[in-house]
Write a protein that binds this DNA or RNA. Structure first.
Lengths: 120, 120
DNA sequence: CTGTTCGGTCACGTTGAAGTAACCACCCTC
DNA sequence: GAGGGTGGTTACTTCAACGTGACCGAACAG
């Protein structure tokens, strides 16, 4: 798994990505047309949405039935793990932001310290 | 959450990434030194490992105690969701690979079909 | 039959993540 | 005090992801 050429690591790289997560979570609620997906995943460009959907189709997670994209059975098994990630992100945003502020402030203080030292 | 400027989406983007997943899973077993991490995460370069660890420290998920990197309490809450992703990847690699082969073969056949049509 | 929306494709250009290699301070040993 | 391992930093390059805008065929609306 931690070996560079292990296919399960490639597989992890494919699913551990924000577009995959958002698309799978949206399609789990209901099949959607291209345009509906495009509107719901705010800020995604057509190109990136097309590329993401093609990749998900290739990996057997999404299929297109006429005009609607829907999860395959394989894709449905992915929903819970990805949903858990999303839930984590929503639950702990604040802690993450506070940690970032503390870290950046500490970095600023270190820079100030260096500047003061240079004044000596 | 699906809004482009929502901070929880930024947060999701940060944790939904293969290096984050591998590092958090390894550090959950035990604190590790830089060199030990570097050896276990096969194929990662020093630069990328340094960058990833700095980002995780900034986000308050990892802290460095003397020479050992360890998960913070916040980082520990991330383990289960990421572990679930890893488990999924290991469980379904074969299905994904088969889907890819089918998809690529179908694409080849479409190309052949076009070539035949051109012969007419 | 004209215009419009939908679901793309194509040909770029730009950005950000990752690779490469050289260098460095610190510690340890011998 | 010379040499090796550890834990980085720095500068430069490469590559994949993403953005942009123009175009296009099919469907449908008027």
């Amino acid at each position: 798994m931690f070996s560079a050429k292990c296919p399960s690591r490639a597989s992890l790289a494919r699913i551990a990505n924000k577009w995959t997560a958002m698309i799978v979570i949206l399609l789990h609620e209901q099949p959607l047309r291209f345009g509906e997906l495009h509107r719901q995943v705010d800020g995604i460009t057509k190109k990136v949405l097309v590329d993401s959907l093609r990749a998900l189709e290739r990996d057997g997670m999404v299929e297109k039935d006429d005009v609607h994209y829907r999860l395959t059975p394989l894709g449905r098994t992915l929903h819970d793990p990805l949903r858990a990630l999303q839930t984590w992100a929503e639950s702990y945003v604040d802690d993450v932001q506070q940690a970032q502020e503390r870290y950046d402030e500490a970095a600023d203080n270190r820079l100030l310290g260096v500047a003061e030292a240079n004044l000596d």
